[in-house]
C-alpha cells in the first residue's frame, strides 16, 4: 500500500477526483480527508506497480491543477 497526501492549498480537490477517475481501473484507491489533506491509499499487484500508479496519479493531478489555474 502506498499513501499519497494532497494538500488542499496545493491541489484542487476536483482535479484529484478527476485523476482518480482516470486511474481507478489500474488499482484500488481508498480516499479520505485528514485535516489539510486529501489522502489517497493506492493498492496494486506489486510495490513497483503501486509506486508507478501513485506517481502517475500524482503527476496527473498536478497537471490538471496547474492547467486549471492557468499557470505555466
Amino acid at each position: 500500500m502506498r499513501e499519497l497526501r494532497f494538500h488542499r492549498d496545493l491541489y484542487a480537490g476536483e482535479q484529484v477526483d478527476a485523476a482518480l477517475k482516470v486511474y481507478e481501473r489500474f488499482g484500488t484507491f481508498t480516499t479520505s480527508e485528514e485535516g489539510e489533506h486529501f489522502v489517497v491509499r493506492v493498492e496494486s499487484k506489486s510495490a513497483a506497480r503501486e509506486r508507478r500508479l501513485a506517481g502517475e496519479l500524482a503527476n496527473y493531478a498536478l497537471g490538471l491543477t496547474i492547467r486549471g489555474r492557468g499557470a505555466t
Binding site: 494538500h7 500524482a58 489555474r69 499557470a71
Partner: peptide, 28 residues
C-alpha cells in the same frame, strides 16, 4: 511563489513523479 513552484515542477513530469506538500507554514 506557488506559481513558480508549479512551473518548475511541470518541467520534471517527463522524468519524475512530482509530489508537493506543505510541511509547515512558509515551506513547500
Amino acid at each position: 511563489s506557488l506559481e513558480s513552484v508549479y512551473g518548475a515542477s511541470f518541467t520534471f513530469i517527463d522524468r519524475c513523479f512530482v509530489f508537493l506538500d506543505r510541511p509547515a507554514e512558509g515551506q513547500l
